[in-house]
Simulated scan of single mutants.
Amino acid sequence: MNERELHSKAALVVIDVQKGFDEKEFWGPRDNPDAEENIAALIDAWQATGRPVVFVRHDSLKPGSPLRPGQEGNDLKDFVEERRGKGEGAELFVTKTVNSAFYGTPDLREWFEAEGIHQFVVTGIQTNMCAETTARMGGNLGYEVLFALDATHTFDLTGPYGWRLTAEELARATAVTLQGGGFAEVVTTAELVAAAQR
């Protein structure tokens, strides 16, 4: 990233960093054990420089999901919850029941427009689900989207015909799809923190 690429009003969108994703028996093997540390570093960098931060929570409608409202798993992880309200910049809390943060409450796009935000960074859980969907939709809506791949994680997944991909393979596929397809630029936490501090 060069010095021009991170706007002073670039928003950090922290997607679904919830306690329910720690339930290994439900989700299975995950990738990127450094994700939480990198997410925290990004929130700290954004708050220290007065940039806007959006915290997103998934309120699952699926029976048995650890992310259902009323379950402890619905809560944001402690390291995220304790950072809410600590920055000098604008802050928004969005809840959603589908993959894209643009289909949550309150309306993310309306807030971006009101705040004059045209660029945002995606971080959170899961890489190939809500994070990727939000990035794709942001790209479709004309935003400049930066995807902090090493500040996301996901889980192994089985699809049709018994095909199974590891979390690492899914994360790589997300990165290739987002950047190769022109939806977003894939970047690292270190690049973003350095750009924020310039």
Rank of each mutant, 00 (worst) to 15 (best):
R109W: 08
V98W: 11
T188E: 04
G180T: 14
G181C: 14
E72F: 10
Y161L: 15
R51T: 09
Q126L: 04
G139V: 02
V176S: 13
K9D: 05
E3G: 05
E168A: 15
D31V: 00
H118E: 12
A11F: 01
I43P: 03
A195F: 04
I43L: 14
K86I: 10
D16V: 03
K9G: 02
E88W: 10
T97L: 11
G85N: 12
A90K: 15
Q126S: 04
R51G: 09
E82H: 13
T97E: 15
L108D: 03
V187F: 00
V122Y: 00
F93I: 14
Y103L: 15
T105G: 07
N32L: 06
D22E: 12
L108N: 03
A167G: 06
T95E: 15
M129P: 00
R83V: 10
V176A: 15
V94P: 07
A194E: 13
G28I: 04
I15S: 00
V80S: 08
H7L: 04
R136P: 01
G139F: 01
E36S: 12
G181K: 14
Q179C: 11
A171T: 05
T134M: 00
N2K: 04
E169Q: 15
A151W: 00
D16W: 02
T123R: 00
N32T: 08
N99E: 12
V176Q: 13
G28F: 03
E191R: 02
D75R: 15
V98Q: 14
A175N: 11
G180P: 12
F147E: 01
I39D: 06
R83E: 10
G85Y: 09
R136Y: 02
K19D: 06
V14Y: 02
D22Q: 11
T49N: 14
D22Y: 05
R4L: 08
F120L: 02
A48N: 12
L141N: 03
A173V: 12
T97F: 09
H58V: 09
L61A: 15
E81P: 08
S8G: 05
F147H: 00
F79I: 12
N2A: 05
V122P: 00
N74V: 06
Q119S: 06
A11G: 02
D16S: 02
V56Q: 05
A194W: 05
G162S: 13
D44W: 06
A167Q: 03
F55A: 08
K9T: 07
M1Q: 01
T97W: 12
Q179K: 13
W46M: 06
E72Y: 11
E23R: 07
V98I: 15
R172M: 07
L108T: 03
G85H: 13
G162F: 09
Q126E: 01
A41H: 09
R57S: 15
P106N: 09
R136K: 06
E169M: 10
